[in-house]
Each structure stands twice: as structure tokens, then as C-alpha cells.
């Protein structure tokens, strides 16, 4: 079946997006990208060092990937906007994942500042993918602001706790006319598959792969899980029933 995700004019076949923090060594990244099948790879501008190629994280991302710089470290809309512009000027393309975090304990995003940054950057022609705490009203405002997709968190970044915000994400999937990409919190391939079965357009995974015993093998497992979940969604899951359906119905005698 021809199943393409379109974002910012690009056609994307892999619905697993990959984060690149926490890998060691960075030279593992190309192999992880390959085994996961990911096409969209996010990298923090704060870590990009064009002057030191040997240690520059961006140089480990395969050329065929779409690089999505993120604004990690931004504490308000203004900083996020400046980071996005610097990334574009550094040749990282026009995609940007907005990450505005004003809470270093749980690393929860500041939705209000994120909306402001989305407005400014989409007006400047960026393909903006904002990372948010799942909230319907915020997501609607992001649609108005020109976001290309909405990225709600499943659980706090790096927590590997799974889809704790499942019901809120379900509402976003039902109500928002943009791709919903579950970002942060997914700890296991089964959780990635679950998000995809729910109708998420894609998932973004970093910590669960980067800190696994074998990151390359785990990347493959996530790739497969995302495909399975997507296939299940497209196939149409059978409805679940509250009660078992008896094979000898009590009212069967009423049928002639």
C-alpha cells in the first residue's frame, strides 16, 4: 500500500523519527539511522560544531536524511527563533523542531512560548514542528500559527515511561488536521506500535534507542514496531467488546 507522510512539501516513507542526543560514540549514528530506516533525524543546534568536523554531530547524519535541528536550550520564544535562524544560516535546512523548556527538573515544554515561536518562524518560511505538552487548545492555536505538524509528549523526555498522556494524544489525533507525532517518553517498541495503532502520524525516539544495550538492534526493533503499528492502523483494528460473545446465544430460539 502506498502510504506516504507529507510534511513541509517532503514525502516521508519512514514514520520513525530519530533523536541524536545521548549516543556514544557519535560514529554509531549512521548505523542506527540505517537499521531504523529513519529519514527524519533531529539534532540540537547547541551541539553542532562546524569548526570541528571530527566531533561535529551533524557530520554523522547521512546526507539523504532530512535534518531537523531543534532549539534545545531555548528558554523563551525569542531564543528559539534566534536558534532556528542560526541553524538555517549554518546550512541545516528550513525544518525546525521548536523546543522551549523553562523547567529543568522535568524538562516539560512551555506551550505558550512555543506558540509564539511557531508564529514567527512559520511566517519566515520555516517548516515548524513544535514540541508540546498535549493540549487541544494549544494544538489548535499551533494550527492557526502555521505549524507543519504537532509533536505532543508521551511522557517527560528521557523517562522511557511510555504513553502516559495517551487520552490527550487521542484527542489531538481526532481533532487536529495536522500530523500528530508522538515525541518523548516512548521507552519500548511496543509503545511506539501503540501510538501508531492509535493513528499517530509518526513517533520520535531518542533515549530508548541511544541508551539501549545494543542501540543498532534496538533501532531496528523500533523501525519494525512503527511499521507494524502503522499497518494495523491502516488495516482497521477490530473493535473490542465489553463482554464475551456466547457461542450459544440465550435468545437463539427466537430465530426461526
Amino acid at each position: 500500500m502506498y502510504d506516504i507522510l507529507k510534511i513541509g512539501g517532503q514525502e516521508i516513507t519512514s514514520r520513525l523519527f530519530l533523536g541524536t542526543g545521548k549516543f556514544s560514540p557519535n560514529s554509531l549514528i549512521p548505523e542506527v539511522v540505517r537499521s531504523s530506516g529513519a529519514q527524519v533525524v533531529t539534532v540540537a543546534l547547541r551541539r553542532i560544531d562546524p569548526e570541528y568536523d571530527e566531533e561535529n554531530i551533524a557530520s554523522f547524519i547521512p546526507k539523504e536524511c532530512i535534518m531537523m535541528p531543534n532549539t534545545s536550550g531555548a528558554r523563551n520564544a525569542g531564543e528559539a527563533v534566534r536558534i532556528a535562524r542560526l541553524a538555517r544560516a549554518a546550512g541545516c535546512g528550513n525544518w525546525v523542531k521548536i523546543e522551549v523548556i523553562t523547567d529543568n527538573r522535568y524538562l516539560l515544554p512551555d506551550n505558550y512560548e512555543t506558540i509564539k515561536a511557531t508564529e514567527i518562524l512559520s511566517a519566515e518560511g520555516f517548516v515548524v514542528l513544535p514540541y508540546i505538552s498535549p493540549d487541544l487548545i494549544v494544538a489548535k492555536k499551533l494550527v492557526e500559527a502555521g505549524a507543519a505538524a504537532v509533536m505532543p509528549l508521551g511522557a517527560p523526555i528521557g523517562s522511557n515511561r511510555g504513553l502516559k498522556t495517551k487520552e490527550l494524544i487521542r484527542i489531538l489525533i481526532e481533532e487536529i488536521p495536522l500530523p500528530i507525532i508522538v515525541d518523548a517518553g516512548i521507552g519500548r517498541p511496543s509503545e511506539a506500535a501503540e501510538a501508531m495503532e492509535m493513528g499517530a502520524a509518526a513517533v520520535l525516539v531518542n533515549t530508548a534507542i541511544a541508551t539501549a544495550g545494543n542501540p543498532v538492534a534496538m533501532a531496528r526493533a523500533f523501525g519494525l514496531a512503527v511499521q507494524a503499528g502503522r499497518a494495523a492502523y491502516l488495516a482497521g483494528l477490530a473493535e473490542t467488546q465489553e463482554l464475551a460473545r456466547a457461542s450459544s446465544p440465550l435468545t437463539g430460539f427466537l430465530r426461526d
Binding site: 549516543f23 556514544s24 560514540p25 557519535n26 543546534l45 547547541r46 551541539r47 553542532i48 560544531d49 570541528y52 566531533e55 536550550g73 531564543e79 534566534r82 536558534i83 542560526l86
Partner: peptide, 16 residues
Amino acid sequence: LYAQGYQPIYKDWQTI
């Protein structure tokens, strides 16, 4: 650091 399976980070911020 590499020998222990760790990644040295030379840059983690830039003036914006």
C-alpha cells in the same frame, strides 16, 4: 572516554 563507551561533548551551547 571513548574507551569507556562515552562521548566527549566539546560544544553544548552557543551564544545566540
